[in-house]
Simulated scan of single mutants.
Amino acid sequence: MTGRYAVLTGGVGGAKLVDGLYRLLPANSLTAIVNTGDDFRHFGLPISPDIDTLLYTLSGNSNQKLGWGREGETWNFMEALRSLGGEDWFNLGDGDLALHVMRGIALQAGETLSAVTVRFAAAWELALNIVPMSDDVVATWVESDEGPLPFQRYFVERHCQPKVKSVSFEGAATARPAPGVIEAIKSADAVLIAPSNPWLSVDPILAVPGIRSALLDCAGPVIAVSPLVDGKAVKGPTAKLMGELGLAISNDAIWDHYADFLDGLIVHGDDLAPAGIAVTRTDTMMHSANDRERVAGVALNFANVLLE
């Protein structure tokens, strides 16, 4: 397929769709705009979980058993950390540390996160544009029944157990889209919203001024892949969060969340879908590389139908 495409994505689930698109599309025709609301500093190191997951997935370095981190990882650092009484709620593998250390050195020297990410992608010979949503710091916070929690404390340390009252994005109001983000959206033949958590992974991207309006103005259709399968989340707290926010756990709620800019929705199998909208169906589970290519192919074909 020819043309230029953009995809808004979070971590593990979104990275699978991006991987499928990357396998099908010509080199350098895809731009992945990645959530950085999850980013934080840990032991002084700048951690960008969703960017790193995408880098590992596309380069073939992702840990297939864990679903995050590097394949063949060792944990000597964490063992030494525990022996000194250090916090061990967020695992940093020995190989994974290289990315964070290199990123920290570059940021300290004045490089932007987008420039560092381009350099990492080039080092692993990845022929696509991986762009953070912003080079400015945006932090996702969860207001919960345990009080306000930074995202990683809620997601990793507390395993999404606290009940969520609201979600906010500190710094978003004054953040600027990273270079190339707006251009990639507006010039795309289609923009895809990955099956990442709409409230925790996609909303931080949309909170950056200019990005939502670019989606409204883009030339091609905007298509979302629903994160729901049989009324449940494939991974993570999507369904739990929807219930806590007072939303029906349904594709209607997914559509309503994106309705101002969305042109089409991809739903799983025979799952109920909103009436009167453009919908296509497929098995959205992506267990294998073939599954990823299949779902990506359905999305690209759907975009072509909507363009006609």
Rank of each mutant, 00 (worst) to 15 (best):
G3H: 12
R4K: 14
Y5S: 08
L8R: 08
G11L: 04
G14A: 00
G14S: 06
K16M: 07
P26M: 02
A27R: 13
L30Y: 02
T36Q: 11
T36M: 10
F40D: 04
F43T: 02
F43L: 13
I47G: 02
D50N: 10
D52L: 03
D52T: 09
D52H: 10
L55I: 14
Y56Q: 07
T57L: 01
N61S: 07
G67E: 08
G69A: 05
N76G: 13
F77L: 15
A80D: 12
R82Y: 03
G85F: 03
G86A: 14
F90V: 02
D96H: 01
A98F: 04
L99H: 13
H100F: 13
A106R: 15
G110L: 05
E111L: 14
T112I: 03
L113V: 11
L113S: 10
A121R: 01
A122T: 09
A122F: 01
W124Y: 15
N129H: 15
P132S: 10
V137K: 14
V137A: 11
V137E: 15
V137F: 07
V138L: 10
S144F: 06
E146P: 05
G147C: 07
G147E: 09
Q152D: 08
R153V: 14
R153Y: 08
R153A: 09
E157M: 12
H159Y: 11
V164Y: 01
V167N: 09
V167I: 15
V167R: 03
V167W: 07
S168N: 05
F169D: 01
G171E: 07
P177M: 04
P179R: 09
V181A: 08
E183K: 04
A184V: 10
I185S: 02
A188V: 09
V191D: 02
L192C: 00
I193C: 08
I193R: 01
I193K: 09
A194W: 06
S196Y: 04
P198C: 02
P198S: 00
L200W: 06
V202G: 03
V202W: 05
P209W: 10
P209L: 10
G210T: 05
R212S: 12
L216W: 06
L216I: 06
C218P: 02
C218I: 08
A219F: 06
I223N: 07
A224E: 12
S226F: 05
V229T: 11
G231K: 07
K232I: 01
V234C: 08
G236S: 11
L241Y: 10
L241E: 03
A248L: 12
A248Y: 02
I249H: 09
N251G: 04
D256E: 15
D256N: 15
A259V: 14
F261Y: 15
F261Q: 12
F261A: 13
D270V: 13
T280N: 08
R281V: 00
M285V: 15
M286L: 13
S288A: 04
S288D: 11
D291V: 06
V295F: 02
V295E: 00
A299H: 08
A299N: 06
N301E: 14
F302K: 08
N304Y: 03
